[in-house]
């Protein structure tokens, strides 16, 4: 964290939330740049031997969900002792993380959506099919408007993964050896909703999204509402764990 310039008390939680976002984006800028270069260069390499029918950026954007979960969980795990020891209250830290989650998800979601649109233009120029692996069949994403609509869901998905990561990160700090077990209920819920939204298998252990097939027919509006409710529930659970979290004793 650089150049904070002494923060004012009532608003420092918001300044910190914005600061976490800019610092995280700065810290991971080369990772994001590498994903961009790789996703855009790989199809040109593969095109030497095979037809290109599937979006490479789609995989990079989906990997961003895991990345987001690791960022939020990792940050929170480290920030709990650091921030509380620096005189921040748990409530202030929770608000900062909430703002960080929203801003990070918007920023990464914007990159994901813009990448899809840029990739669509690039694929169109090369005469390639811009599709996704929709449960074992290649389905075209569609027109530019449909691609934009497809990509517009990424901020929400990133937010859900951010909240899930924060919950597991907070639990892992609080219950040193058992906190990660919260993955057991969290992963199937998040994966199933992710699966249901796009009718695709999420990146990772796809079997964990087994409920996605059952709820995939409920309609996109309801699934989006469920994703919003899930993000809120995960955030509320993370807040509950965080609000009276004790700092661990130092080990010699």
């Amino acid at each position: 964290m650089t150049a904070l310039a002494n923060l004012r008390l009532p608003t420092r939680r918001y300044a910190l939330g914005a600061g976490f976002t800019t610092e995280a984006l700065k810290f991971f800028k080369y990772w994001i740049a590498a994903a961009l270069v790789l996703a855009f260069a790989l199809p040109f390499a593969v095109a030497q031997w095979n037809d290109i029918t599937i979006s490479a950026w789609y995989y990079a954007a989906n990997a961003g969900k895991w990345f987001t979960a690791f960022v939020s969980g990792g940050f929170l795990f480290v920030l709990v002792p650091n921030m509380i020891a620096t005189g921040l209250t748990r409530r202030e830290l929770a608000v900062s993380m909430g703002l960080f989650g929203v801003l990070w998800s918007l920023a990464l979601g914007a990159i994901a959506c813009a990448g899809l649109l840029a990739e669509r233009a690039s694929y169109a120029a090369m005469g390639w099919s811009h599709g996704i692996d929709a449960n074992d069949a290649i389905a075209p994403i569609g027109s530019a408007a449909e691609t934009a609509a497809f990509g517009a869901h990424y901020p929400l998905l990133y937010l859900v993964y951010f909240a899930a990561g924060a919950l597991v990160g907070a639990a892992s700090y609080r219950w040193e050896s058992a906190g990660w077990l919260l993955l057991v209920p969290v992963l199937p819920v998040v994966f199933s909703l992710d699966n249901a939204l796009y009718d695709t298998k999420p990146v990772g252990p796809g079997w964990a999204g087994f409920l996605g097939g059952l709820i995939g027919d409920w309609g996109r509006g309801l699934i989006i509402a469920l994703l919003l409710a899930t993000a809120a529930a995960l955030a509320a659970a993370a807040y509950r764990i965080l609000i009276d979290i004790p700092l661990r004793a130092k080990k010699a």
Partner: peptide, 8 residues
């Protein structure tokens, strides 16, 4: 620099 979280 992280100490600047404290106003003082």
């Amino acid at each position: 620099e992280a100490g600047q979280i404290r106003p003082s």
